[in-house]
């Protein structure tokens, strides 16, 4: 993936660049808004990672400008401003996702990969498929090996989010936001409980396990062994 990274703090810029390169991505990094905007106009990146507060041109302006120029590259805001209002402002200006500093790398990577997939989204597809697990969005029916699985609404929602991002890691934070609309981490391990219930329904009595826990990162639904 080719990523445009605009971040004014050089050390942050460097370790994000390093980390993304480690995970096999190509990174163009800029430390001021003007150079960043010029690079964004080239429209050759898959994802833009953008700091909110930048010298010369700030992040919100950059997004507004490139969106006005019909550039649809997904934008992930990166900011120390974590208040709800700040998030809303960023998303309204045309950003696609918002990550508050400090963040974890796995979170950042999971989010930009999810953004990239949005370019050719699975959300338009009615039937999601992982190995012999099928989820029909229209009828809200789930089958494994052609056997109907009876899921509670929340379990269905959880499975849907996981399957829309199959073969990728979904972090706990993303699950909390997307499945339960919780924008903080509760003390109680709700995710573990819900995942284990879902796992019981889809993986129990099957040789091939599809729902995987990725230690220190999150969860993933995939056929291949992790």
């Amino acid at each position: 993936m080719k990523i445009l990274l605009i971040e004014d703090d050089l050390s942050t810029l460097n370790f994000i660049r390093k980390g993304l390169k480690e995970s096999g991505h190509v990174v163009d990094g800029f430390s001021n808004g003007k150079d960043g905007l010029d690079a964004a106009y080239l429209n050759e990146h898959d994802v833009i990672i953008l700091d909110r507060m930048l010298p010369e041109i700030d992040g919100l302006t950059i997004v507004t400008k490139i969106r006005n120029n019909k550039i649809t590259t997904p934008v992930l805001f990166l900011s120390a401003l974590g208040e709800v209002d700040d998030r809303v402002k960023g998303l309204k200006a045309g950003g696609d996702d918002y990550l508050t500093k400090p963040f974890s790398f796995s979170e950042l990577i999971a989010r930009i990969e999810a953004l990239n997939r949005r370019q050719n989204p699975k959300s338009d597809i009615d039937i999601l498929e992982v190995h012999d697990l099928l989820l029909n969005k229209r009828s809200r029916k789930v089958t494994r090996n052609s056997v109907l699985i009876n899921l509670q609404p929340q379990e269905y929602k959880l499975l849907e989010v996981l399957m829309e991002n199959s073969n990728e890691v979904i972090t706990r934070t993303m699950l909390l936001e997307k499945v339960w609309d919780l924008h903080f981490d509760p003390q109680t391990n709700i995710i573990d409980v819900h995942i284990s219930r879902l796992r019981k329904k889809i993986d129990k009595d099957h040789k091939v396990q599809l729902l995987h826990t990725i230690r220190g990162a999150g969860y993933s639904i995939q056929y291949n062994k992790v």
Partner: peptide
């Protein structure tokens, strides 16, 4: 600094 500490730890963990 904590964020940077954590990020570097994560880089190390990847390696």
């Amino acid at each position: 600094p904590l964020t940077k500490l954590k990020s570097n730890l994560e880089l190390a963990a990847l390696k």
